[in-house]
Amino acid sequence: MANKILLEVHEAKPSFEENYLPPVAFNLKVRAGDCVIIEARDLEVASALADLCTGMVLLREGSVHFKGLDWFALKEPRLSALRGNIGRVFQRNGWMDMYSIAINILLPSLHHTNIDEEKLADQAMVLCHRFGLPGLPMDTPREATVIDLARAACVRALLGKPDLLILEYPAEGSSAELMSPLLEMLNTAQNRGVGILCFTRQLSLWDDYKERVTQWMRLQEKGLTSIRLG
């Protein structure tokens, strides 16, 4: 399981229609149990790379495989079902205002699994408590604070035991009390064989997790490059 490649981006050059990615080839491998931290100062480019990893960006060349399956060779409903195996924290636009935060959290699991609703709600409650929320928030995203939304986003990403986690700036801009439960949950997930891909603006935020990080990378105009921390 340790050698199983979850996500493989091979010489992927994005098409230049409406995306923020530079027109260079991207290469990335995330194995089961890996934790890849990508330093990206440009939020739009980071989101676009995360979209590329989930097969949302058209490619001119190259391929993107998830669990051995090429995103662009799949059709609905397999495509959506495969995306359901990815837990994602969106840096923005991840909440539907017409539903409460509780429904937003449960939505992906309700859609992709047959797990009993009450059981799902119990699992979500446990995660909410871990992240410092008193329970499943019933107010709408517009009424919630930024820190509560950040916590809820982590709960949603981790609910349903995904195979890959893509986290866009999960703890930046929030108080430090979110970082501790997040690292604890990521550690548990990594031990379970989940692959983690995390975007950050400050590598120093991950100092406490340095030993568990398998790759450090930087996203710039010339593409994705590996870096070695001193």
Binding site: D51, T54, M56, L79, S80, A81, L82, R83, G84, I86, R88, F90, N93, G94, W95, M96, L107, P108, H111, H112
Partner: peptide, 10 residues
């Protein structure tokens, strides 16, 4: 949000 839904496989 529509794009986010698609990204989540919905």
């Amino acid at each position: 949000q529509l794009k986010s839904l698609t990204t989540m496989g919905i």
